[in-house]
């Protein structure tokens, strides 16, 4: 199993929570946004020196990644809003994009879509270079699963239904062919499991209360590999929710953990 964590840390110094989460969920790769509060050498020590931050020639900007040392992983590209990585588990080769798109308050959907188009172009270039289409995009998209940024051909072109992507991993629109991603979120959102979203917000007059801003998208090749995804409401015995919303002193976002089965 390949276990991936994404967490927007709200610039809080929460190394103990991160270490507990990584230990409890046997995380292989952890991607973080708003990570400036974390002292990574201290986090690495708390993880027994078994994990390391994957740096490259350029400093991280919006996202950073920590991975277990037994994984062959390297950073391929750093940009203002996302980083690209390639890694090999021995079973499969993957491309991973960790993203933190522009926030809703200060930027428009068009700004996010411009970044998404750039990201897609770079993912496709890397898929050609590495001859690998096991691509994963994970992060804080600052957009919801049904939002234009996710569903439009000019955005991620992410479909929410496995049936659709299994039929074809591309679609045609106005004489152009667009590659698709699969967004598994619909399978996991549930009142039964209280899997509502990653961010709680009631400031708008038409608030949805819970927003799934932190998501994972995969190519068709990995659509059947996703065994589980969850927004964690607890880490070991520690509750991440106070009353109804995430505890801001930990983070305003709940962590997202995704498990992928490697043999499929």
């Amino acid at each position: 199993m390949l276990n991936i964590l994404f967490w927007n840390l709200n610039r809080n110094d929460i190394e103990d929570y991160i270490a507990e989460c990584i230990g409890e969920h046997e995380i292989d790769i952890a991607v973080f946004a708003e990570y400036e509060g974390v002292k990574f050498p201290s986090l690495e020590r708390k993880l027994g020196g078994k994990y390391t931050r994957i740096t490259g020639i350029e400093s991280d900007k919006k996202v950073t990644l920590v991975a277990k040392k037994t994984l062959a992983i390297r950073k391929v590209q750093t940009t203002n809003r996302y980083n690209l990585y390639s890694f090999d588990t021995g079973v499969k080769k993957y491309i991973l994009a960790g993203v933190h798109l522009q926030d809703i308050r200060n930027y428009s959907a068009a700004d996010r879509e411009a970044t998404i188009r750039d990201l897609k172009s770079n993912i496709e270039k890397n898929e050609d270079s590495f001859k690998c289409t096991n691509s994963i995009v994970i992060g804080d998209f600052n957009a919801n699963p049904f939002g234009h940024e996710l569903t439009s051909v000019h955005g991620f072109n992410a479909v929410l239904y496995r049936d659709i992507i299994e039929k074809s991993d591309t679609n045609k629109f106005e004489d152009m062919i667009y590659k698709r991603f699969y967004n598994p979120i619909l399978h996991y959102i549930s009142e039964e499991t209280k899997m509502y979203g990653s961010l709680y917000n009631t400031t708008n007059d038409d608030t949805k209360y819970w927003y799934c801003l932190d998501q994972i998208l995969v190519r068709k090749e990995l659509a059947n590999s996703i065994k589980n995804m969850q927004y964690l409401r607890k880490i070991n015995a520690q509750n991440l929710i106070k009353s109804v919303a995430p505890k801001r002193n930990i983070s305003d976002h709940l962590p997202l953990v995704v498990c992928l089965e490697e043999t499929k």
Binding site: R117, E124, V153, I177, Y178
Partner: peptide
């Protein structure tokens, strides 16, 4: 050239 949109049919 940066290819941003899809490929022509």
């Amino acid at each position: 050239v940066i290819k941003r949109e899809g490929a022509l049919l």
